[in-house]
Design a protein around this nucleic acid. Structure first.
Lengths: 193, 193
DNA sequence: ACAACTTGTGAACGACTGTACACACAAGCT
DNA sequence: AGCTTGTGTGTACAGTCGTTCACAAGTTGT
């Protein structure tokens, strides 16, 4: 599979923007010409990857919703689930991190959209859980956006360490949780308008 | 100048990881072989760019310190100065955003270090201004780190819009300020330990 | 059974790549 | 004056790149 091959190379440290058609088909053990059977260009491949990334993110959302029932452990558990998903889809998330400042505007916009969708869903869930109910819709959206960005930045932390470094991983988990806690305290004391 | 040429290409939408030696020397109007007179490799060039980025960031810090005297306008002014610096060093900051998830670990680490340095300086300044004085050193560091990350993420927002879109720029400025305000409120009500 | 479609193959092209080498010119030092 | 050092030049080579084309094998619908 070509997408898989691209992700493998990305996971091996290469940047998506520096990959070539021949390189990917070589990794996929297929002749270069075959590339065009599936994608018009690299950008095309990238956009398809963004679509699949959306699927991964939605899966993560679903799992989070299913497992976070008590508001008191909300953050610890959400962060843990996030970290686990990054670990088991490392290449996908590496692609996401790269794409945020990548060279294709289309891919960039696609990833940005996924994040915004995620933030809106988060705002919805918070609202349904009765959390931060004193916030206006706009302020709740803003808070969710800030949360998503903070977690997304932690993504780059996770990706910068070796996948087996459990010690560092724990540090990142704790730091991210503290970030989120601080944001929620801020949101708690925020006065809309 | 080779560094300038690389930044020009980056500013033109290319990703640093996808640039070639010949491409850069062509942009610099110099013969390919000349590249090796100044840099051993692309990574070498990138690391030198990170050093120069440090200079830019320090300049920004200095200007912020000089202009932010009243704590009440601290955030609005700091954000405004940041946005201005991004606008007038757009290519440099694009390189920075790319490098955070780039393909050279050395460059990645270099930029990460710059950000950490920035965060520590910010913690220092906050301490000197007598702000958030109820926080422990560790918690003040954490807060600064969160602030720097939030601003860094806004960087990608700025870079994703056209340089002349004043309307969107104002939106980003306001959003970033609100993010920071929320973080500071959270820090205000944070109880260390 | 036959046609239409999908996916993969192999050869070929012209352009571009990184890097090596020998050489030229200028500046600074002694 | 002669020597070293730094920078830029021109040529060259072997390898890679994206893309084209005509062709084969397998699957599907009728």
């Amino acid at each position: 599979m070509l997408m898989e091959a691209a992700l493998t190379l990305v996971g091996r440290g290469r940047h998506f923007a520096s990959l070539g058609i021949r390189e990917i088909t070589r990794q996929a053990e297929v002749v270069p010409t075959s590339f065009y059977r599936h994608f018009r260009s690299m950008d095309d491949l990238g956009l398809t990857l963004v679509d699949e990334l959306g699927v991964v993110l939605r899966g993560m959302m679903r799992e989070t919703r299913a497992n976070v029932i008590h508001a008191d452990k909300l953050m610890d558990e959400s962060v843990a689930i996030f970290v686990n998903h990054v670990q088991s889809n490392r290449n996908f998330f590496t692609f996401m991190a790269q794409g945020l400042a990548g060279e294709s505007q289309a891919i960039q916009q696609g990833i940005r959209n996924e994040m915004q969708f995620f933030a809106r869903e988060l705002a919805n869930d918070l609202s349904n859980l009765g959390l931060l109910s004193h916030l206006s819709d706009g302020d709740l959206d803003m808070t969710s956006e800030l949360v998503v960005r903070t977690v997304a930045f932690s993504l780059t932390d996770i990706l910068s360490i070796s996948a087996e470094d459990e010690e560092e991983l724990t540090r990142i988990r704790r730091q991210t949780t503290r970030f989120l806690r601080m944001i929620f305290i801020g949101a708690d004391h925020w006065q809309s308008g």
